[in-house]
């Protein structure tokens, strides 16, 4: 069955893309299965300079999900280009989404410029929604004007289609989406993690060293579906949906509310073979839903309503 999708000119064999921060730079997963079966994947959020990230503990378990406060640990854009991409190319012949982080406009622009030049990069995913960094990150993604300004600045230097990854920690995700599309975004990905917290009832201490951390996993799926629906209904650019996806059925749900492709995040951490399973399951699940062409699933929720 043809599972291919087209994201405004970026053609993927299937809509399954491991999400940034849950797939490293692909190398660990390449030891587990042939990662060329993926539609693509989004690299670990990469900044201009190397970052160690936040103090430990950075992880907490929650009902049907988890919190992380990693804080964009990464080796920096130059090291990714010089050390990680050459190793990745030995095991992966497709292209990646380059997830770019930063702490101010200049650092976002510089990192996006470096990464978007690379052949292996098919698109830049601008991370203006990381809740775990003090400066930048979510601060840009929760202010419509700042989000638009940084999108416009990165768009000027970005040599590949620019997707902007949105934060769910806002009053109106639709307003931010409209602003960044207006500022030149070629696509939207959402949702990043929801700000949350876990506390030890015995001691009263927060579990993570940085008390407020990003919630992900199955727990966020209903929120993610609602936000993807809101945004996909409002914008004309491709939307990649994510938030708690764990199965081929979940993929159909996200595509139904308007996503052209999906990202699978936290589930990669608890079942490293999940993306392989989802891709293998998709044909049967599509048949079960009576669907001939996966592209016909995109946005069908609204068509049902009419």
């Amino acid at each position: 069955m043809d599972l291919s999708v087209n994201l405004g000119g970026i053609k993927l064999d299937n809509p399954v893309i491991p999400a940034s921060g849950t797939f490293g730079y692909g190398l660990e997963f390449a030891e587990l299965y042939d990662i060329n079966i993926l539609g693509s994947f989004s690299i670990k959020g990469t900044t201009l300079e190397p970052r160690f990230g936040n103090p430990l503990p950075r992880i907490a378990e929650t009902p049907s999900g988890m919190l992380n406060s990693v804080g964009l640990q990464n080796p920096g854009a130059e090291a990714v280009v010089k050390e990680y991409f050459p190793r990745l190319k030995k095991v992966y012949r497709k292209k990646v989404f380059a997830n770019v982080g930063g702490h101010d406009e200049e650092s976002y622009v510089a990192a996006a410029e470096i990464l978007s030049k690379e052949d292996i990069v098919c698109a830049v995913e601008l991370n203006i929604s990381c809740p775990n960094v003090k400066a930048g990150g979510m601060a840009f993604g929760t202010d419509p004007d700042k989000a638009a300004a940084i999108t416009a600045a990165v768009k000027k230097v970005c040599r590949k289609p620019l997707f902007v990854k949105l934060s769910p920690n806002v009053t109106s995700v639709k307003d931010i989406a409209l602003k960044v599309v207006d500022a030149g975004a070629d696509g939207i990905t959402l949702i990043n993690t929801l700000l949350g917290m876990a506390v030890d009832w015995k001691t009263g201490r927060a579990i993570t060293a940085v008390p407020h951390a990003g919630l992900s996993g199955a727990a966020v799926k209903p929120v993610a579906l609602r936000m993807v629906h809101e945004v996909a209904s409002a914008v004309s650019v491709p939307v990649i949906g994510m938030g708690g996806i764990e199965s081929a059925k979940d993929v159909l749900e996200f595509m139904s509310v308007g996503a052209s492709a999906v990202m699978v995040g936290s589930k990669n951490l608890t079942d490293p073979f999940i993306c392989k399973k989802i891709i293998e399951d998709l044909p049967a699940v599509l048949s079960e839903a009576g669907v001939q062409d996966i592209k016909s699933v995109i946005g069908r929720t609204d068509r049902c309503a009419k």
């Binding site: 849950t22 660990e28 430990l56 579990i207 490293p272």
Partner: peptide, 12 residues
């Protein structure tokens, strides 16, 4: 405390 156990989440 770790999430994945195989080197991708940067939790540990």
């Amino acid at each position: 405390r770790m999430a994945c156990g195989f080197g991708v989440c940067m939790g540990c």
